[in-house]
């Protein structure tokens, strides 16, 4: 191409036009390729039937004090714990400590008794132990991640170990006294 565009008989005006044509054609090509690529990429996003599973209703009536259950929401484990008075007190006490990801216990729960959070360690996604009575609960009496040793307190806040943030709280609401809707 170079040998035709720079020959002496070609005026600057022609070269400019040719550059414009090349840019315009190239630009259209990019737009075309992008509009072909987008549906392909978007097809990898969650499909309609996956999105349809975005809420889960949970009956919390059978959960006794000091007991936890794990339910599945969007393919992830969600911890629902009916906390004891001691645990709530420990969580409130933790509000004043030096926290890596400072958050008040009151901001993490809608009702002091019920702690709802996504049970995936914020380090690299393992499920922390602490749901069963026999599980190790870490140095702060909450949850302990066995993969890389992160300790969470009774509010699910990171207290020790490599995890950067607290266990996240999913969107949820109390439908009535016995039922919560997650998602």
């Amino acid at each position: 191409m170079a040998d035709t565009a720079t020959s002496p008989e070609t005026g600057d005006e022609d070269a400019g036009r040719r550059d414009f044509l090349a840019l315009a054609a190239g630009g259209m090509g990019v737009v075309g390729a992008a509009s072909f690529a987008w549906p392909l990429i978007d097809s990898m996003n969650p499909s309609a039937e996956v999105l349809a599973l975005s809420t889960v209703e949970v009956n919390i009536d059978p959960i006794a004090e000091g007991q936890s259950i794990t339910i599945v929401w969007q393919g992830k484990p969600v911890f629902i714990r009916r906390r004891t008075a001691d645990e709530v007190a420990a969580a409130k006490k933790g509000d004043g400590e030096d926290l890596r990801d400072p958050q008040k216990d009151g901001d993490r729960v809608q009702n002091d008794t019920w702690l709802v959070m996504i049970g995936l360690c914020t380090h690299l996604g393992c499920i922390p132990l602490g749901q069963k009575g026999t599980d190790p609960k870490g140095e702060f009496g909450g949850w302990f991640c066995p993969c890389h040793g992160s300790h969470y307190d009774t509010s699910g806040r990171i207290r020790k170990g490599p995890a950067p943030t607290n266990l996240p709280v999913p969107p949820y609401k109390f439908v009535d006294d016995k039922t919560i809707l997650i998602g």
Partner: peptide, 9 residues
């Protein structure tokens, strides 16, 4: 029906 742009692809 469900996959984004699945019909198109």
């Amino acid at each position: 029906r469900d996959v984004n742009y699945g019909w198109l692809i």
